[in-house]
Amino acid sequence: MVDRIPILKMGKYLLLSIQVDMHDQLALDLQEDLTEQIVRHRAKGVLIDISSLEIVDSFIGRMLSHIANVSRILDAKVIVVGMQPAVAITLVELGLSLEGIATALNIEKGMRWLENSVNEDEIAGEPESDEDTDAPSETGN
């Protein structure tokens, strides 16, 4: 019996891989753990790998939406990767299209997306924080 799903920290990102059948308590614990970890590590992105998840119900679907919404408020981007065809079909049939959650085919592509979108944010935010100091160094390189 697994009582917690491990959440791994990798640089600015948090990685979590769901490899067991989710039951309700596990999902609730996960939500709690994740929000805590995002705040503690000031994570910029969360990657959720569900490639081993074969059974899904409306509760899990809602949980994913919930995690995504909470993370967005905490300024972390969420991407769900590796969804199985059967799971995707089930979610669609349940009417849960996971609006607003980014998805990718595998961890590699998901990671690339996270890096791109986080970098974009930082570049956009940079001129405000360090104004002129950056400009000369860039021309120098």
């Binding site: 769900v80 990767v81 590796g82 199985q84 995707a88 079909i89 979610l91 669609v92 998805t103 085919l105």
Partner: peptide, 12 residues
């Protein structure tokens, strides 16, 4: 639309 949504969920 269902097919498209399912594909989107998988990341395509």
């Amino acid at each position: 639309l269902k097919t498209i949504t399912a594909a989107k969920l998988m990341g395509a």
